[in-house]
Design a protein around this nucleic acid. Structure first.
Length: 919
RNA sequence: GCCCACGUGGCGAAAUUGGUAAACGUUGCGGUCUCAGAAGCCGUUGGAGUAAUUUCCUUGGGAGUUCGAGUCUCCCCGUGGGCACCA
């Protein structure tokens, strides 16, 4: 009679696998629902209790949608290229493919035990050649494409070549990095090599000398989002700026669309906001300032053209080429010294030093285009070479950086927008009236902006312009464990491999380290370096390449003719529900949008965005335990006495700590160096310190789900993880409440038992029982639709308690209840479903119908308060449905008996709630 | 510095459109069962007053809108996240 979850869960997991219960049908007439989880990187630490949080939520939703008649695609796979496997390989000499395979097997085993409804026949692995064949194929498509700003989409490179042949590049409106202009005749006179070099500067993936984030310790370049505060995200090693020949992806071509299309998708505001910040669109104008002595002009970019009359100096970035040209002899020495110091400072130093103001006067002057005033030109490292034009018009009155600079060097500060107090700080608000500004006087900031831009354009000294903070994404990595870039070099110019030669398989190497000459590990491979005698590219792709299109591969994962068949792509289209962590906001989630838009432009897929709805699951954090070692000794001091000593806090494995008390025997056995450890105790116990942190192997705070499944079963684990709180919220893992959920499963099982044996009654349910059932159906349906699974668990508990009180044993109630429980606790639901005499899986059964009449009470009687005093009970006729009553407006006549002669216009009744009285 | 989110019992939390705040679980306390324990089961558990039906207070702080505010508006405080010399 006791519910045997171990046996039952194993039985049904085997059943699902054998019957392929969760493979979607080949039925294109049925509506589709594509439910996707971000696939995991299979790390050596195995799956921890944080991973399943999002997977459980999407699994509940997927199972629900299946019962609602949708053809559901719910796949899972592995993001199996990555740095940890490679670093492990460097240390042990073991091939990353071997460790990855082992880790995947472990993940799979752990995932299976939780009872997910994944269609494993569609599993993908990014490190599998049959998969990365198509990652390489997409790379080749990007290589052979350019971004035409006129049509506002990517086009084949051939359309660009024909424009060059017709008109040269003067009229081409493209996203590119080509600095020369040429005519059609010149184009035709170019050698093959010259033409290829030009084309490279237009391709959507291109090779160029780029300032990159070089991490010497990791021996590789890193993308901007892999660098945090001048240190590598993985490992925390210093990162320096370095000029290197690198592949990049021209994501900047899509900046505008990536920003604008955020409006079309149902993603969390915080993610949209993060992407907007990252893209960093700013609208403004360029302005030219003519330099004295006919040297030329300084072009600046400003978002505040309205403050142009407040300009009292110009500042150039130290790297700006103009600096050496304009500096007058008197200032040469100082300027050269300053530029040298600035260029030698590392990115990290410059960031750490934001507060320090530095700069130097060049001796040169420019003329203000409107007032004709002489404006001094300075050099300052607060101006970035890589943004805008590398030069700014300084308006100290209305920009805090210019203000600080002017104060420091005692430069004139001029007020041109009314509203602030310039003796204290710059007035940056875009709100106020323009003063001291000639033809702009009296206008608002907004009006002045438009007027100033108009005047600038009229005089042809500048143009309206939009700048983006977004940079092109560096695409090469000097690593082994990644997709080889399908490119060879002829005459130093890159060419892509013929598509029929894909995949370009990762070669074997003797060591996973760079060569002595500093070439990437792939340069070690024998019989690899050439393609018809031409050398192959030895860089590999970054981690995000494989994950930027995997959602498409699941649609048709075994196709070797196309990344996915057209029919499949047109049916499944895009992801309806995407669940994953918010840490990918400006990485994966931006790149997958970029590649989707590109594939859409080229006509390969019918959608412009990869995922309609995104839900971020929170992180389940670990509670780390600490021991305190007295410095220079092998003595550990208990938490409360540690302030008396100089100690170092060390992470200790959470499995040998219970309620903050350390198991001393286990601690001694844990690590060899602990064998002779001594302790200073509190009341005979060693008390550990604790802290909430991210779960990770190195912090020894990882809790695996296996243990929970073993103790309480998968259904309890699933419901408990949901019960912990909203899916979106991060929270530390604790098992305090799990007995409550475990008790629920047991009580539910008990409902089906009469004196020890399984039985249900065929008697018609009572009114009260039907009310409990339909209340629950309504609540659970609402909860699932709005992704509020924690409240569902509470609802189930209330329902079971009420039915237990009613001693309900009727099939008419218990059978539909089993159905709505099945997405949450599928194993016990399947078992009951089969014991009730049904064949087949409960997962294909229809979701029970909600009958609203059952929710209506026999009589409504509401306590009503009026003016905080008058109290009476208001009764409402029974013959109205719940929704009718909700909207029912009572007439004055009906209410007069309660409120006497007061003039009551109407009374609004909300079932179960207060009444609104309008007088 | 800028942008965003959040702040409710001892704890995790609920309150869906502005409508009885604290559902559900846990912890603690009391009881029942037991040789004993585990597991069940029953009662109680925001604060204050009361012998008691019951009354008053309470959603970080302050103000406002409203018949009515945890929910809406403004200011302040605190926590978390994103961006960070981006002109």
């Amino acid at each position: 009679m006791e519910y045997n979850f171990r046996e039952t869960e194993k039985k049904w997991q085997a059943y699902w696998a054998k019957n392929k219960t969760f493979s979607p049908e080949e039925n294109l007439l049925k509506p589709k629902f594509y439910s996707l989880d971000m696939f995991p990187y299979p790390s050596g630490a195995g799956l921890h209790v944080g991973h399943p949080l999002g997977y459980i939520a999407s699994d509940i939703y997927s199972r629900y949608k299946r019962m609602r008649g949708y053809n559901v695609l719910h796949p899972m796979g592995y993001d199996s290229f990555g740095l940890p496997a490679e670093q492990y390989a460097i240390q042990t000499g073991q091939h990353p493919a071997v460790t990855t395979e082992k880790n995947i097997a472990r993940y799979r085993e752990q995932l299976d035990r939780i009872g997910f409804s994944f269609d494993w026949s569609r599993e993908v692995r990014t490190s599998d050649p049959s998969y990365y064949k198509w990652t390489q194929w997409i790379f080749i498509q990007l290589f052979h494409s350019w971004y035409n700003k006129t049509s506002d989409k990517a086009e084949p490179i051939s359309t660009l070549v024909s424009q060059f042949e017709k008109d040269g590049n003067g009229l081409v409106h493209a996203q590119h990095s080509c600095e020369r202009t040429f005519t059609a005749a010149e184009w035709k006179s170019f050698t093959e090599k010259e033409q290829q070099q030009v084309l490279l500067q237009y391709r959507l993936t291109y090779l160029s000398d780029t300032m990159v984030n070089w991490c010497p310790k990791l021996g590789t370049v890193l993308a901007n989002e892999e660098v945090k505060d001048g240190l590598s995200e993985r490992g925390g090693f210093p990162v320096v700026r370095k000029l290197m020949k690198q592949w990049s992806m021209r994501i900047t071509a899509y900046a505008e669309r990536l920003q604008k299309d955020l409006e079309l998708i149902e993603w969390p505001e915080s993610i949209k906001e993060a992407q907007k910040n990252w893209i960093g669109k700013s609208e403004g104008s360029t302005v030219e300032f003519k330099l004295d002595n006919e040297i030329g002009v300084i072009e600046v970019f400003t978002t505040r053209p309205d403050t142009i009359f407040g300009v009292t100096f110009l500042t150039l970035a130290p790297e700006n080429e103009l600096v050496s040209m304009i500096t007058t002899p008197d200032f040469k020495e100082a300027v050269t010294a300053y530029v040298n110091v600035a260029s030698n400072r590392s990115e990290r130093e410059r960031m750490a030093d934001v507060k320090r103001i530095s700069g130097v006067f060049t001796g040169a002057y420019a003329t203000h285009p409107f007032s004709g005033e002489k404006i001094p030109v300075w050099v300052g490292d607060y101006v970035l070479a890589g943004y805008g034009t590398g030069a700014v018009m300084a308006v100290p009155g209305h920009d805090s950086r210019d203000y600080a600079f002017a104060k420091h060097f005692d430069i004139d500060i001029r007020e041109v927008v009314k509203g602030g107090d310039l003796s204290k700080e710059a007035y940056e608000a875009k709100d106020g009236t323009i003063i001291n500004s000639d033809f702009l006087n009296g206008l608002s900031v907004k009006e002045a902006m438009a007027a100033a831009i108009e005047a600038i354009e009229k005089r042809a000294i500048g143009k309206r312009r939009i700048n983006f903070r977004l940079r092109d994404a560096i695409f090469s990595r000097q690593r082994y464990w990644g997709e080889p870039i399908p490119v060879f070099f002829k005459d130093d110019v890159p060419y892509t491999l013929p598509e029929e030669q894909l995949p370009l398989v990762l070669p074997e190497v003797d060591k996973y380290l760079p060569t002595e000459e500093g070439e990437p590990p792939l340069a070690r491979a024998k019989n690899w370096q050439t393609m018809d005698g031409y050398p192959l590219e030895t860089n590999t792709m970054p981690g995000w390449a494989g994950s930027s299109w995997y959602f498409l591969r699941y649609m048709d994962p075994h196709n070797d003719k196309r990344f996915a068949d057209e029919k499949a792509v047109n049916y499944w289209k895009d992801v309806d529900l995407y669940v994953g962590g918010a840490e990918h906001a400006t990485g994966h989630l931006l790149y997958v949008r970029f590649w989707t838009k590109f594939l859409f432009d080229m006509g390969h897929i019918p959608v412009n965005e990869p995922a309609r709805k995104l839900v971020n699951q929170g992180m389940i954090q670990g509670v780390s335990s600490f021991v305190y070692r007295i410095n220079g000794t092998n003595t550990y001091v208990s938490h409360h006495q540690k302030q008396n000593f100089e100690t170092t806090a060390l992470h200790v494995d959470v499995s040998i700590v219970k309620d903050n008390v350390l198991d001393l025997q286990k601690f001694k056995a844990w690590l060899p160096e602990n064998k002779d450890a001594e302790f200073i105790l509190d009341d005979g116990n060693y008390i550990c310190g604790s802290e909430v942190e991210k779960m990770s192997k190195s912090k020894h705070n990882v809790v695996n789900p296996d243990e929970m499944v073993e103790l309480y079963g998968a259904d309890t684990l699933r419901m408990y993880e949901m019960f912990l709180g909203p899916v979106e919220q991060s929270k530390p893992w604790n098992t305090n409440g799990i007995t409550g959920v475990f008790g629920f499963i047991k009580k539910f099982w008990k409902l089906f038992h009469v004196s020890g044996s399984f039985a249900v009654s065929e008697v018609q349910p009572s009114k009260a029982e039907l009310k409990v059932l339909h209340k629950t159906i309504k609540k659970i349906t609402d909860d699932i639709e709005r992704f509020s699974f924690n409240t569902s668990v509470a609802t189930f508990m209330i329902c079971v308690n009420e039915l237990t009180d009613l001693k309900c044993d009727k099939r008419g109630i218990l059978e539909p209840l089993t159905r709505i429980l099945s997405p949450y606790a599928p194993h016990i639901a399947e078992e009951i479903w089969s014991r009730l005499g049904n064949t087949g899986s409960i997962s294909g059964v229809e979701w029970p119908q909600l009958i609203e009449e059952h929710l209506v009470d026999d009589a409504f009687s509401y306590p009503v308060s009026f003016n905080g005093k008058t109290k009476f009970n208001l009764e409402i006729p029974l013959n109205l449905s719940a929704s009718e009553i909700q909207e029912r407006v009572m007439t004055a006549e009906e209410t007069r008996k309660f409120l006497g002669d007061k003039e009551v216009k109407k009374v609004i009744v909300v079932p179960g709630r207060i009444v609104n009285i309008v007088i």
